[in-house]
Design a protein around this nucleic acid. Structure first.
Lengths: 205, 205
DNA sequence: ACCTTTGTTAACCATTTGGTTAAAAAATGT
DNA sequence: ACATTTTTTAACCAAATGGTTAACAAAGGT
């Protein structure tokens, strides 16, 4: 009755190892040998599966970016009331990132170190964010007198900042505020409600 | 009547070059040769002034951290009304960072890659942040009924997130929202007022 | 059984990179 | 002017690192 536990394939092990090492040390700091060791294989085998470091990095980076950006795009395109959008964005985004708390800093840092690479590889024809609709929606709510006169751009920045930044600054916040792993998770869990509540209090009339 | 323009000393040129390269590429990605080239000197001279890469990095990192953390600590210790504190923090912090927009991501990333180093080098007996007073102040305002019942911890996180994150995600926001350098500066200038206004709207009764 | 393809390894290679050496300039003191 | 100290350089070195080679083992097909 126990399921047959198929060993992770070599490729899967490589990808898991590469993700761990790249996210921990960044593209520049990661060593192919470390990745091979982490995967429990020979370095040559690494190159057998992935031509070179760049190619392997690309796979990892694209997968990471693919976890972070679609959700943001969703909030831009969805057809829901503003408050609902804000609530579901916070909850879903925090849930996703909580499983990989170091992804945002990894991705933002690599974007920063080579914005052109990012632009060409991640947004090559694909779903590049279209914030216009979301911004327009906010403006409409303002026009209808449903919420305070607020700049859509700043509201958007506030929302994303409050949701993502605690992960980016995780080690700092933890040291600074004396939170262990469990407490940090708990705080981020609270934020799923806290952030929407905060925003709504700030913009409702 | 024109002031004598003393050439920057070699050491100053090295520090400026090292800052540029380290902030751009990170500790792991920075090359000593690049720093030497940027400073217009020989690589051996670099080692003449700074024993090794680690030591040079330490100087740059500590200077960068020294620009970012004291201001945060100030808000924790200052003896001012809550709303005033929030306003002055946003304005002053944004002013400081606007001159070095890439410092926060640089520092956060290096902290992330070696939290122990950070702890030992930056907060070795020095002014490590003491958020307790600030958190207590918020609680008092709540108790006095001056502001809404809000979690001090989350308020603090919100404040710092909204202030710092736009710099951390600068390239992303710029691409995403189509902001050139000037527009970005202008938006951040607005945020000096926008963030305090947003927070106050959110917590005032 | 035998051949072909796929997976895996140890040893090796070329380049990059942080760091050193020894000697030449430049500055400083007397 | 001369000796001493400080600054700067070209050449060099050893270790690290990404990547390759060639041979070996395993799997799959016939």
């Amino acid at each position: 009755m126990s399921k047959i536990k198929k060993d992770k394939s070599t490729e899967e092990r490589i990808l898991a190892a590469a993700k761990k090492i790249f996210v921990m040390k960044g593209m520049a700091g990661a060593r192919m040998q470390d990745i091979a060791d982490e995967a429990g294989i020979n370095k040559a085998l690494l190159h057998y599966y992935f031509k070179n470091k760049e190619k392997l990095f690309e796979v990892i980076f694209l997968e990471a970016a693919g976890k972070l950006f679609p959700k943001i795009n969703e909030i831009f395109l969805a057809d829901k009331p503003l408050f609902e959008k804000i609530e579901s964005f916070c909850a879903e985004y925090i849930s996703i990132v909580m499983e990989n708390p170091y992804l945002p800093l990894f991705v933002l840092n690599e974007i920063n170190q080579d914005p052109e690479y990012f632009l060409s590889k991640v947004w090559k024809g694909k779903n590049l964010p279209m914030p216009e609709k979301f911004l327009a929606q906010i403006e409409q709510e303002v026009a209808k007198g449903k919420i305070k006169r607020i700049s859509p751009l700043h509201l958007l920045m506030n929302l994303i900042s409050m949701t993502v930044f605690p992960f980016v600054a995780k080690p700092m916040f933890q040291k600074n505020l004396g939170l262990d792993e469990l407490q940090f998770r708990s705080v981020m869990e609270q934020r799923k409600k806290e952030i929407p509540g905060f925003i709504i209090d700030a913009i409702k009339k």
